[in-house]
Design a protein around this nucleic acid. Structure first.
Lengths: 340, 340
DNA sequence: AGCTTTTGATAAAGCGGTTAAGTTCGGGCC
DNA sequence: GGCCCGAACTTAACCGCTTTATCAAAAGCT
């Protein structure tokens, strides 16, 4: 038989459609006995709710959107995305909510997608990655009045919910560690400067210079690509006065940087310490393996997903969640500088 | 104003709901003039079709499912998935179709998801990864009568559509190359033996032994993890008679293997050639960089997505598409064996 | 002119659920 | 006994869009 509908069940169980709906959704209006009978029939007929029909009725799409404004290839390159996606997925699955993915090429397309998915009621909410400084998306999304969970923060001047990890604290830990090892010349190969977390990391570095009386501390922004990571590394290692330590904002760049060091005959960690502000298989597989700030990205995303579900259930909420601070995992790529 | 519906448009344009529907969907039943007027009104009111409502009517969900039976963390580890996902996405986006992702822990959950998503009409079709030998999913999916595009093949004894790349041919190229360099002892660190493509690669190797009169050729199956890759490598490099070349079925394992070689003081490529049957950033970032069989994974997925869309439009079709064969890209990790 | 087609539009019936608003009925209470 | 009430169901409207049946008017044909 084709898909059974609640009408079929109703007929078979000898009750009305309404009663079936009550029974199946566990709400009052039917006796326990009737409920059991209806459930038995539904089960026997192998009934499943029709998503679209349900959505039409109660205006819940049963899905949330993740829109990534990145060149499509980065998705395959940055392990970060895979972890985020599977983490979100795990959190949403608890509720039977689906994750809809869209990769777009530019910010305009991203905004257009938020608008159309909202208008089409395709999703019940969005997850937003990489909040920017003065992010124009915030106001637009607030105007759309759609539940949004931002992965990053903390955010001010917005009613959007967010889940953040304390990058500043983590960066402190990293710099303190390098300073304790005796490093005085540190370069920070940063990510995109418009990203909120990039800025926060850079700020910590500036401040650390005074605190630890470091001789040199520079943050150099990049686009996160391995090639820029390599270029910058080559440049700073070519200067008369080399840094003795480099902090990279992603493991991809750190690995690229390590490659440049080897290529230039700079020994790691004897001549140069390398620290990655992002951990993944990549950081563990290299030789020497990379000291990294590690965190449970997947768990973070799962938490965020749960928050978003709460938000969808009660849009008046504002969820502000702090996940665990990244932790320094020392590996082989860091050591005291030569002559220390 | 809240979401405008076609009823609002109809009222404003002074026509019936039906006429509006005809006009918006570009089908006959309204005059050109009326159509333009209706479209103008719709545009002005910023109307968007309500997905659920549309789906209810014509039973198209406007989404396809990708269900991954993997431990969630692999998603973040294997660049392969990111490329597949973004590739599929690109193909589906051309049609406004969405991609729904689900990561499940085991094959039972996978099958359950196929069933429930089909029953709930949540998706119009599925993309299937990693076809197995005598894959039990095929029959189940055929029984569900839902459009399916398998990434892999070629498949026999099934009506499912597939898009494949010629692994055998690629493996031939790899082995021929190693043989030409003078290698006689080759180890193949394979993937999961139940995977169709793993088997095909292993078969080629067996056959190549005779063709090239190689002294030793073994395929050792693994679970694709970096740790197994490392363990196997350590084992074969510890034997009295070492292989002079190792072919890895994934770049993650190849990188892990490279690490073991370095750790054991085995020089690459002087003492050992390493070839990866999978290319990504990973293979390029290591030192030495890895010779790899490379292919346009993303493009492959995009093609497959298009095929699936055709299939959804006309379920009587069977799409059998062959994408380009992986190509050998020599890098620094391969060379003639010592003393050759 | 008289009749059949074609064209352009309408009204209404779903699609498969949810839900507000009845309807029945048995029981408790005065 | 009459009245009121809550529990257990039923009815029917509705969600937004598609589609079929219907119809009036214009156009085509002999």
């Amino acid at each position: 038989m084709a898909r059974p509908t609640i009408a079929d069940i109703a007929e078979r169980a000898g009750v009305s459609k309404g009663a079936v709906s009550f029974a199946l959704n566990g709400r009052p209006g039917v006796s326990e006995e009737t409920r059991r009978r209806i459930l038995a029939v539904a089960d026997e007929m192998n009934w499943r709710p029709h998503r679209a029909a349900r959505s039409l009725g109660n205006s819940r799409a049963g899905a949330v959107g993740l829109i990534l404004p990145r060149p499509a290839r980065t998705l395959g390159l940055e392990p970060f995305f895979g972890q985020i996606v599977s983490g979100l997925q795990a959190g949403l699955a608890e509720d039977g909510t689906a994750l809809q993915l869209l990769v777009v090429e530019d910010p305009e397309a991203e905004m257009a997608a938020y608008r159309s998915w909202t208008a089409e009621q395709r999703v019940d909410g969005f997850v937003l990655l990489d909040p920017l400084i003065d992010d124009p998306r915030f106001a637009a999304l607030e105007a759309l009045e759609v539940p949004v969970m931002v992965l990053g923060g903390p955010l001010e001047d917005t009613s959007l919910s967010f889940s953040w990890a304390d990058d500043s604290e983590a960066m402190h830990e990293a710099v303190d560690y390098l300073a304790a090892l005796g490093h005085r010349h540190v370069v920070h190969v940063a990510g995109m400067p418009q990203f909120l977390h990039t800025k926060r990391r850079m700020d910590v570095l500036t401040e650390a210079k005074e605190r630890h009386e470091l001789a040199e501390v520079v943050s150099i922004p990049t686009d996160y690509s391995d090639s820029e990571g390599a270029v910058i590394t080559r440049r700073v290692l070519s200067r008369r006065e080399r840094p003795t330590a480099i902090v990279y904002d992603s493991d991809v760049m750190a690995v690229a940087g390590l490659g440049v060091a080897l290529e230039m005959g700079v020994r790691v960690p004897q001549d140069l310490s390398i620290l990655s502000f992002d951990d993944s298989l990549l950081a563990r597989l290299t030789h020497p393996s990379l000291t990294a700030l590690t965190r449970d990205t997947q768990g973070w995303a799962t938490e965020a997903a749960r928050g978003l579900l709460r938000l969808i259930a009660d849009p008046s909420l504002t969820v502000r969640h702090q996940s665990s601070t990244p932790v320094l995992v020392p590996r082989e790529s860091t050591a005291p500088p030569a002559g220390h």
